[in-house]
Structures are given as structure tokens and as C-alpha cells.
């Protein structure tokens, strides 16, 4: 009978499990920190929204249209912050294991925030006469929407091209725990993905760069260089 290093097999197993659990706890600790981070950012962004709402109310009631430009800058900045946090939240959610519920609640908050900003944007367009086009983008997972990657890529590109003159609000169509999502889907008669709604006009299936560009340019009062040069 040959010798068997039984002790070493057991010790190696214990150390391996030790390292595994260390990794697991580190992962969970990071997840907790991520949730805290998003929560604190979200509180700050809620405050920002209230402040912005107040600024518009101020302009509206005291006819302070001359301040429109400055407030619109804040509006744009807030929306950008909101979008980058939303993307971060999506990534965190993908990697999370135990904090799904907390992250889902946060996702809910972000969906509501997007809708609030969209509605506020609509109001300010009238109030300040801003030359802005809104796009609502409804996406789904890879199974239901293999073209969503492409659509998101094109929209990101157009956002970078038109910057503050184009506002894009993305909605996860699967996120039906927020009642506003089915409501919006019903309003615009959305059943396939990707669907984009440009200034209230829904377009289902993947839309190429030029199609969207032509459409949004038709809404601008002042045609920029990007609308003429393709």
C-alpha cells in the first residue's frame, strides 16, 4: 500500500475554502457599499430635482425667463448625472447576488426620476422655448431584444453629437413593478423592442443613425451643423 498525504488534502481543502469565503465576504461587503453609495447619490439627486422644480416655478410665477438658460444648464447636468448613475446601477445589479431587492427598489426610483425629468423637460420646453428633442427608449434583455445593443450604441452616439439639445430617457420594459412602465407602454402601444419614441411618435424595431437624425432634425427650430452634414 502506498502512502496517502491525507493531512495535506484536508489542510489544502480548508485553506481553499478559507480563501473562497474571504472572496465571498469581500464581494458581499462591496455589494453593501455599492447599495449605500447609490442610495446616497439618489438622495442628493432627489434634492437636486426638488431644487430644479423650484427654480422653474420661480421662473414661471415671477416671469423670470431671462434665467432660463442658467436653469437649463442645471437641468442638463442633472440628467447626465442621473443617466450615469442609472448605468452604474444596471452594472451593480448585474453583478449582485444578495442585494437584488435593495437594488430593485433603487432601479424603481431611477425609473421614476427619469419620468419626472422627462415631464419637467416637456414643461420647460414650453416655458423657456428650449430647442430640445426628447427620445424615450424602451429596451429589453438580449433574448427578447437582440438589437437593443445596436440601438443603445446609436443613441449614445447621437447624444454625444447633439449633447444638451437631445434628451434620451431609457426604460427597462421588463421592469413592470413600476406601474408607470406598463402605462407608458400602453400609451405608445409598445409590444416589441427596441422601440424609440421621438417627440411622442413611437418607432418599433431598430432605427439607424440617419433615420433618427432626420427625424430629430425635423423638430429643431434652429438646424445645427450636425443636421446638414451627415
Amino acid at each position: 500500500m502506498r502512502s496517502l498525504s491525507r493531512d495535506k488534502y484536508i489542510i489544502a481543502g480548508v485553506i481553499t475554502l478559507g480563501i473562497f469565503f474571504l472572496g465571498l465576504f469581500l464581494g458581499l461587503a462591496i455589494e453593501g457599499k455599492r447599495v449605500n453609495y447609490i442610495e446616497s447619490v439618489s438622495r442628493k439627486q432627489n434634492l437636486d430635482f426638488s431644487s430644479l422644480q423650484l427654480q422653474y416655478a420661480f421662473i414661471d410665477q415671477l416671469s423670470q425667463e431671462k434665467n432660463c438658460l442658467a436653469v437649463q444648464k442645471t437641468f442638463e447636468q442633472n440628467i447626465n448625472n442621473l443617466e450615469s448613475t442609472r448605468i452604474r446601477l444596471e452594472n451593480f445589479d448585474r453583478e449582485s447576488t444578495l442585494n437584488k431587492n435593495e437594488l430593485d427598489i433603487l432601479k424603481n426610483e431611477y425609473t421614476i426620476a427619469q419620468i419626472r425629468y422627462w415631464l419637467l423637460g416637456e414643461r420647460t420646453k414650453k416655458l423657456c422655448g428650449a430647442d430640445i428633442v426628447n427620445i424615450l427608449y424602451f429596451f429589453s434583455d438580449e433574448k427578447e431584444c437582440p438589437d437593443c445593443d445596436k440601438q443603445a450604441f446609436v443613441l449614445t452616439y447621437l447624444k454625444k453629437k447633439f449633447k444638451d439639445k437631445l434628451l434620451i430617457f431609457s426604460f427597462d420594459s421588463k421592469f413592470e413593478s413600476e406601474p408607470m412602465i406598463p402605462l407608458l407602454k400602453k400609451t405608445y402601444n409598445i409590444s416589441t423592442y427596441p422601440t424609440i419614441v421621438i417627440e411622442g411618435n413611437p418607432k418599433s424595431k431598430f432605427q439607424g443613425k440617419d433615420t433618427i437624425l432626420n427625424e430629430i432634425c425635423s423638430y429643431y427650430m434652429e438646424k445645427t451643423e450636425d443636421c446638414t452634414v451627415k
Binding site: Y37, S84, N91, F92, F153, Y157
Partner: peptide
């Protein structure tokens, strides 16, 4: 899809990094 217009993508690239990422 964007006719290889990398210039627009690079021009507006914003460094948005968080340790938690």
C-alpha cells in the same frame, strides 16, 4: 452603424470612474 465616426465618441469622452465599479 455610425460610419466609423470615432471622432464624436472620443471628443465627448468623459472620464467617469468610481472605485466601486
Amino acid at each position: 452603424l455610425i460610419n466609423f465616426d470615432f471622432f464624436t465618441l472620443i471628443k465627448t469622452f468623459k472620464f467617469d470612474f468610481n472605485l466601486l465599479d
